[in-house]
Design a protein around this nucleic acid. Structure first.
Lengths: 383, 383
DNA sequence: CTCACTTACGAAGGAAGGCTTCATTAGTAG
DNA sequence: CTACTAATGAAGCCTTCCTTCGTAAGTGAG
């Protein structure tokens, strides 16, 4: 339990934080508007803003003309006083994106990797991807405040890969440690499904929901949970492993799409499901039946989650969510029959960038938490 | 998002709250100890405590003798400045308990009710149970700050019974409204499994866990979730309805115990399961096999919850938890085979009083939230 | 019983942060 | 050019907390 009482300086901290949050939430604001939102008087808010300006957090912008009376000075949060990187370490690609402190993406890069590439080559691809981002925006590693990386598999709280079925060579790697050697900033490592869920919650279709179930449907199945506005990790950081229970029929569900007769012979296995979904969209009855069997299985695990958590929204994401038009109607139908209350069911809109921007959002949250936690050490202030 | 900034008075509020929380957590404390815990100076803490004393929240107790130096004055939270009632509305009994603001139970009563009693009779039993508590402690309804009631079924946020399978006449009742007519205090209504989970989390075997799955095993199956230290209700207040998914095999699970050949003929149906469990404890192979099949089913739904949430602890509660010695070993065995990480699995220790004390804890939390939420109106101060 | 020692109490003075008030200033409108 | 409007910035006040220091109320040794 938090038993810290308050000092005068704590009050100022609180008010500074409030000012920054208001500025981040609503863009450039005048002193009066800011004071109004925060419930402070104008003179007090001025003091706060002056301090924040001298610290480099806040900056004045030109006043908006054309108003009655003396134009008010306007201030904005200096989101560019630091930068963040998000990385998505996938089987075939490493994606990286550079953003400012508000999570606005400035640059994005992609580095292809062979699925069976050795460990060092994969790490080198990460370095190339991130360096590419930095170069494209004319930044250098010292501008980075935090780097968040997403990877499949079970990831320990200290950033090691406990188990990766998709990339076996990855298992046991101290990913956070290796990244820390590459970049001189804070390093965060997190499961990719959870980052995708976070992205949809922060900037995707689930923006207004507090409890979200994110379904990662693709060649592998996964789930990410947002509960009460926070990513749920679980005590052993293993939440969301629904696919491991045979009764929930998730693990083998994609097979229905892979082994469908509608797939032309000779198709590489990673493209088979895509063919089936495309054929189903154009009405092929064989493909439609395969999709039906797939959704039957998908719905069982999903219904379990919905009945257990009663979320506000279910978001369909991952590779197959491109075919949401084919998958959503039957999924809704199956769930309606099984659930007490059918939550909203939507398709992801973020697509392939889901995990990268989720990583960035993760870094944004992390920096936000550290804003005024004095014990955590100073942030790299810009001036 | 909370954008309220702070005034000096807010700081004082914060410090008052801190003082009260410290006193509630650690019993009578001296001024220095209190100041130390809260991070305030002694003179400031004195000011705070003086104010709280004059408001009736805090009271001085005799100093502890035998110490070096001048004896320090000691203060305690006046938990008796208000009272709370918890009610458990079960099929065969209505239980009520009266507690102080810290949730210490002062009196308990029980009123038997026929399972098929008409609605008004059940409501009358509630009134008798609560009045009995009040009378036994020489309190009157005006001393009550809050009454929390637990009932089976799906309960809407405003305290109506949306659906009750156990007590059909209950369905559609505006329980909160009826209780509000009986008692002039705040009324809370909540699902009983959730209250039981809360009780185990606040004062039972799950005290140190932040994420808990509570299994309500008995003639009906239910689940209550504690996630991140809070009861999880779900968007439609329908979380925990695992039994409704056939694939999770919860709904019919108790039948294995009811229809066991080890039950003597002529046993009333509500006692059958008890006989089976007793026979299993004494080694009857037929009963043991029935218990095995029961646990097989129980483990499927439980594994789904564990895999999805990765809780720190699973607590077995409800009527059958009296036979935890028979159920836990096989349950642990089944789960170990299915789960990534086996959480701690324990039996409830609160027994039949689980729901009543959970209701009290619910009321305690509610009052605690309102302590210094000025907008919510004043609390009934004692003097 | 007295004196030294220990520890808490309580009053005084000072610093920090917030609030209100009011004359001043920089725009727009006619 | 003048009237009007709305933000600015300086002055003075109140609340809350901090530090400092002399005083009070116990214990324990001689």
């Amino acid at each position: 339990m938090d038993l810290r009482g308050g000092d005068l300086s704590r009050l100022r901290q609180l008010n500074s934080l409030t000012a920054i949050r208001a500025l981040r939430a609503a863009g450039p604001l005048t002193l009066s508007a800011l004071a109004d939102r925060a419930g402070l008087s104008r003179p007090s808010m001025k003091e706060v803003v002056d301090e924040l300006t001298s610290l480099g957090w806040v900056e004045e912008v030109p006043p908006s003309p054309g108003t009655m009376g003396r134009p008010a000075r306007r201030y904005r949060f200096r989101a560019d006083s630091g930068h963040l990187v998000g990385v998505d370490i996938g089987g075939h690609n490493v994606r990286a994106a550079l953003s400012d402190l508000d999570g606005h993406v400035l640059t994005e890069t992609r580095q292809p990797v062979e699925p069976d590439a050795p460990l060092d080559e994969r790490l080198a691809a990460i370095e190339r991807a991130v360096s590419g981002c930095l170069a494209a925006s004319r930044k250098n590693p010292a501008d980075l405040w935090a780097l968040a990386a997403g990877s499949t598999g079970v990831i320990t709280p200290d950033g090691r890969i406990a188990l990766s079925k998709a990339v076996p060579a990855w298992t046991g790697l101290d990913l956070a440690g290796r990244l820390r050697e590459m970049f001189p900033c804070e390093i965060l490592v997190e499961n990719d499904s959870r980052l995708a869920a976070l992205a949809e919650f922060r900037r995707g279709v689930a923006r207004d929901a507090r409890d979200v179930v994110f379904l990662h449907v693709g060649r592998r199945m996964g789930a990410g949970l947002i509960i009460d506005g926070k990513v749920h990790r679980g005590f052993g950081v293993a939440a969301g492993e629904v696919a491991l229970l045979p009764e929930l029929r998730w693990f083998d569900a994609p097979e229905h799409l892979n082994t469908c007769a509608a797939v032309p012979p000779g198709t590489p296995p990673e493209d088979a499901a895509g063919h089936t979904l495309a054929a189903a969209r154009s009405g092929d009855p064989v493909a439609l039946e395969a999709v039906g069997r797939y959704v039957d299985d998908l719905a069982v695990g999903t219904a379990a989650m919905v009945l257990l958590l009663d979320p506000q929204m279910v978001v369909l994401g991952g590779g197959f969510s491109r075919s949401a038009d084919v998958l959503l109607p039957p999924l809704r139908d199956r769930l309606e029959r099984r659930c007490v209350r059918l939550p909203e069911i939507r398709a992801s809109t973020l697509g392939d960038e889901c995990v990268v921007v989720g990583a960035i959002d993760h870094a944004v949250e992390h920096v936000g938490r550290r804003f005024f936690t004095p014990d955590a050490g100073p942030l790299p202030l810009s001036r």
